[in-house]
Design a protein around this nucleic acid. Structure first.
Lengths: 184, 184, 184, 184
DNA sequence: AATGAATGAGTCTTCATTCAT
DNA sequence: CATGAATGAAGACTCATTCAT
């Protein structure tokens, strides 16, 4: 399946930003990775790199939402869904190479302070948390508890990914469900 | 108190990297922030920017260790220490401006993959976790539980900071102790 | 009155070139100022920017000829017409903003050397001088004197406009008739 | 005689801007004309092209002041000095190629509106006029008349150069003294 | 020991133009 | 007849680094 140029650009950008951050990747590299000609970028993304970053973040967000759904949909209870999610994340971590971080924070929160970036990251993170919350409610949690746990899960996944990156070890992520279960 | 040139450079670098990431800050900016002459950098940091980044990360790490000690030393039990730590972090978040992230991951994990960076970040993160673990044991936790909880705390603090950044709201951090207490 | 697309393009181009010169204005800006669709330009102006510049220069020239006529037609003698012309020019200078220069030289003489441009500017300047000369003869000057004075007027108006631009003061233009009267 | 890099840059820039205007010349061309490496420009001219343009304008201004002095110093009266100045200008016009205009207006008045440019052009033009005025007074003119005539001369020279450019004929300049003598 | 000059590869972006529809 | 998509060369500028002093 051949993606259209704007999609190829967003995808390539997402992958590269994930590995080296917004400022760490040059447009020329993205262009060549997407096999797109130089001038084409500004045709599809009027504001250049920042627009592309937004598109890349949304691209990555959709992927994350899909992973959340894949983990929770077949689960019999919240704990199983959560555990599966961490295991899927660990597998993703291994596949992508140990250098990659959360695309959204890598793209939108690191790099030069940009109000639009901050706002978008907030929206995306909220969307992830909401999605987990929905699954939680579907699996029997009452709204308040579902919300708390979804936030907790998000925070642990986000921080756990960083620790996994630092240690170069995806098992950090696999061990987290037990950590959470044990409470604190 | 007037710091020596290498320290002024490391400190300025830490602050700037924290806000915009390793790749997002140019040496010239660091130099002028530290009021250090241009050629002086390579005198003190043979390998240039990467050496400076390592120094900046260590500088930031020492600050973090101090904050951990300040939170736990006067605490009567682990939970109090943990809660104080989150509150201190929230205050720090407000002081530094809502754009700053964890200096260590911002400097060493984002940006171009660099084995030395990764290894250093692992050492620093482990040092933080160890320090919390020591406080935990001192406050009565057995070694295994202390280790688990220290790791949990680290992960939540790290992820919580990201969410606080995205939401531009330090209260995210202040609410985390209750989240953890509630278990998952 | 709604101008046709080619005329809107020429007019917008004239205004913009006048302010920032031929090389200083991009086609995209002209297009958006004229509210003309992107592809439309090469439909009306086969040779692109250079054709448009020529059209813009002719547009501006017609405007200048009109101003000359407006100044001299009601005049009782050459001196009055000349004085009125300088005052009208000063008013134009104020209306257009102090940054604008002679459209013809700004478009055709600055920017990359182009034989067609040079030749067109010569024709246009000659047309202006001829028009003044005609008015001079009509007002009683003999052909030779009319020619000399028309050239003199042109040269002073052209140079005076530059000085007015540099000083940001239209009174430079208003004071010129006395300067000329005083001889040299 | 080998000029220092900043001077070579200013000189090359002056020549090129004169021919094609501020916006019409790329830095790479100036750099290669001055045989200066790319990064060197921003070392000597912190604000890049605009600083270089200012330096080029001052360079050209010094040259013009020298020409004024060369014309008036040996003159026995004002009219002779003026006539010589126009003839020297005509010769310069021929030497530089028929495409070159006044460097100062070409650099500072065409191109994007820039307050610093406008102010500098005003200062430079005033300096030229003052210099002519000084010569006039030295040659017996009273202050008021010297000022008027110097301004007149400047305006005519400036406008005359444009007409010479359009006609591609330096004799336009040579004929101007008679034009002025004849009064208007 | 300490530093300002110098460097060229690299940055993001805009350019005028062509082309397929 | 009219137009939005597409293009690659060129634009100005910043980068981390080296070097002579």
């Amino acid at each position: 399946m051949k993606l259209a140029t704007p999609d190829r650009l967003a995808q390539s950008a997402a992958r590269l930003f994930q590995e080296r951050g917004y400022e760490g990747v040059g447009l020329s590299e993205i262009l060549s990775a997407a096999k797109a000609p130089k001038g084409s970028l500004y045709h599809h993304f009027r504001n250049g790199k920042s627009d592309l970053a937004l598109a890349a973040a949304h691209f990555a967000s959709r992927e994350m939402l899909r992973i959340i759904d894949d983990a929770f949909t077949p689960a019999e209870n919240y704990k199983d869904g959560m555990t599966t999610l961490f295991h899927k994340s660990a597998k993703l971590f291994d596949i992508m190479g140990k250098w990659n971080g959360c695309p959204v924070s890598g793209i939108l929160l690191n790099g030069s302070p940009n109000p639009m970036f901050r706002k978008t990251s907030e929206m995306i993170f909220n969307a992830w948390i909401s999605r987990v919350k929905e699954h939680g409610q579907r699996l029997g949690l009452d709204p308040d508890e579902a919300d708390t746990r979804a936030t907790h899960l998000f925070v642990v996944l986000q921080g756990g990914w960083d620790l996994a990156r630092a240690r170069g070890d995806s098992n950090v992520l696999r061990r987290l469900p037990d950590l959470l279960a044990q409470g604190l």
